[in-house]
Structures are given as C-alpha cells and as structure tokens.
C-alpha cells in the first residue's frame, strides 16, 4: 500500500476576542493510494476545518493557526504546513484537489464551464489551448455528461445540481491529483443523484488510483464509499478503524448512539417505537467538558472516571482506535 499523505497531531485554532479557540485537536491519519478514508461527525465537529487546514485554505495567521504536520509523500516528503504559499499554490489542484458541498458557489457564474476547466489545466501546465480543450472534452465525458463538446459553452446556472457537481469533479481531476478531498459532495443532492456521484467517484478512483478523504455526516454513505472511517466529536477523533469494524462493532458510545438515532430503512413501517436519541447538544469546541468530551451526554458515564483527563486514543485491536475509558466493560456487558 502506498501512503500518499500523513497528518500528524493536527491542531487548528481560530482567534476570537484576543485569544485562540482550539477547534481541531490532535487529528492524525494517513491516506493511501486507491483508498478512501471517511470523516464522519455532526455539524461543528471540525470536519471542514480539518480538510481546509490540509488544503491551507483557512484564513491566514493570526486569524487561524494550524500546528502539527501534514506530509505529502512523493520522491521527497513535503510538509504542507512549512512550505511557502507560492509552493502550496502549485500543489493545490495539481497534487491535492478538493470539491465542496455546494458546487454553485465554487463555479464562477460568468464563465462557461469549458473556460473554467481549461483555465484549471493551463494555470498549472504549459500546454496549448487546443490541447487543453481536448482534455476538457475528455474530462466532461469521463464524468458521465453526454455531448461533452457541446457542453463546453454552457454556463453553470444552465446545469442541474448533479451536473454541476460532475463538473466540479472534472475540474478537480483535470490534473490527475493523487489526493481528492470531498467535503459533503452529495449532501445537497437527491438520493438518486447521490448514488450516481458515489458510483462515479468510485469508478474514477479505480481508474486513477487517487486517494480520497470523504467527508459526510451519513453512515449510509460511509458504508458505500469508505475503506476506513474516522468519527469526530467536538474537534477530536473518537473512533478510527476499518469501516466494517466501525459500523458493525462501534466501540465508542457516541458512534453507536449516532447509529441508533437514524431510522432504519430495513424496519420501515414496522412501528419500531421511539428512536434512541442522544440527549443534549454538541459542546462548543472552545469549552470542552473535562475528560471525555462526550461525558455529559453519555449513558455510560461514571463520574470520577469519565470526567478526569486524559482519555487516551486506544488501540482495541486490529488498528481499531477508540477514545473511551470504558469501552472494554461496555463491550463485555453487551456480550
């Protein structure tokens, strides 16, 4: 397996009223060629900030500050947090690309989609306009839009949400990046179109061998796309493992709670009674509860244990990591 990116103890904070509020705490993971890592969590858990941090698209210091290491592996290792902005600009789009939830805000409404794809190519590669145009047609075709050549002259507003997301994918893949970061790319789409986009991303990944970091809040989508999964809560990684392991034997009470809170398709109409909700709210990342950040909402909390730091991120076996002091006894009681 080829490792293409290593994130080590990434910490990100924003400046507010003269002090720094940490919102991402010690995030570490690796991306491998041809594989997909999912980042799941509720809103505000730090998924987007993590991905923008990797792309170095957060507001510049002192408004925000990122610490730790983000190593892009190739002939030499490059730490994205220590290179110049000019060098980062050359890597962005070329080696690491990103797509977002709402493609309309990232496409420029006054240029045709052809111009935008061609510009994405020619800003990084010295090739002729004709060659770039040919490549654009090839890309539009590759993302499954019929009549590729005729589409070059259409404007973003003339396309449906699903087509715009395909165009964003075409732009992101124009330079054959090794890494694609997708931040909730299907959240705004209908389920039928979501299924098309997930299929497309899987096919393109098989063809190009790119590594994917896929951000979502939907465990169903995770099951469909990810090899490995990280669950985030209040800016921290609370569970990390093979997707099947995380979905079938979740060890962190927050993960199992989230999964139980979603109604199941399989038991529709069977009058399952009430859903098991998680009481309370996600804490503000700037003032996390002491010890386990989930302890005020957890049904397994023991005071004197769960509210006392540190809560290590432990290996429960086979690289399945969990941040919970009681995972073993919870697991034993369940069996």
């Amino acid at each position: 397996m080829t490792r293409v990116l290593t994130v080590e103890n990434l910490n990100i904070g924003f400046r507010s009223e003269g002090r720094e509020l940490p919102v991402v705490h010690d995030v570490s993971f690796t991306l491998e060629a041809g594989k997909t890592l999912a980042l799941v969590g509720e809103s505000g858990s730090g998924k987007s900030v993590t991905s923008l941090g990797i792309m170095r698209l957060l507001p510049p210091p002192p408004q925000s500050r990122a610490r730790g290491k983000i190593i892009l592996h190739s002939d030499e290792d490059i730490d994205l947090l220590s290179i110049s902005e000019a060098r980062m600009r050359r890597l962005r789009g070329d080696r690491i690309a990103m797509i977002f939830q709402e493609p309309l805000t990232s496409l420029n409404p006054v240029y045709t989609i052809g111009d935008q794809i061609i510009e994405a190519i020619r800003s990084h590669r010295a090739i002729s306009a004709r060659k770039a145009r040919e490549r654009a047609v090839e890309l539009i075709d590759q993302v499954g839009i019929p009549d590729a050549a005729a589409r070059l002259t259409t404007y973003p507003h003339e396309l449906s949400g699903g087509m715009r997301q395909r165009i964003m994918i075409a732009i992101a893949l124009a330079l054959e990046p090794e890494i694609l970061i997708a931040d909730e790319p299907t959240t705004a789409l209908d389920v039928t179109v979501q299924a098309q986009i997930i299929d497309l991303l899987r096919r393109l990944q098989a063809e190009t061998g790119m590594a994917m970091l896929f951000i979502t809040h939907d465990f169903g989508v995770v099951a469909d796309i990810a090899d490995r999964t990280i669950v985030m809560y209040a800016g921290q990684m609370v569970e990390h493992g093979q997707t099947e392991a995380v979905l079938e034997t979740p060890l962190m009470p927050y993960t199992s709670g989230l999964m139980r809170a979603v109604p199941e398709l399989e038991t529709a109409g069977l009058n399952q009674g009430e859903l098991q909700s998680i009481e309370g709210f996600v804490p503000n990342p700037a003032s996390l509860p002491n010890g386990c950040a989930f302890h005020p909402r957890c049904t397994h909390t023991l005071s004197g244990i769960c509210d006392v730091p540190p809560v290590p991120f432990e290996d429960a076996g086979n690289g399945h990591l969990v941040r919970c002091k009681r995972w073993q006894s919870i697991l034993e009681n369940a069996e």
């Binding site: 299924a195 465990f219 169903g220 995770v222 099951a223 469909d224 398709l265 399989e266």
Partner: peptide
C-alpha cells in the same frame, strides 16, 4: 429505495443507479 444509503445493508442490496436527471 435502492439509492437510499443504509449502513445496514449497503453491500447486500441490489443497487439501481438511474441514468440522468
């Protein structure tokens, strides 16, 4: 129904991906 993502049966269900919008 087949497009609705589900953590329970992602790999067990028949998947129909509709063409077009």
């Amino acid at each position: 129904l087949s497009a609705a993502p589900s953590p329970k049966s992602a790999n067990r269900r028949k998947r129909i991906v509709l063409k077009g919008d």
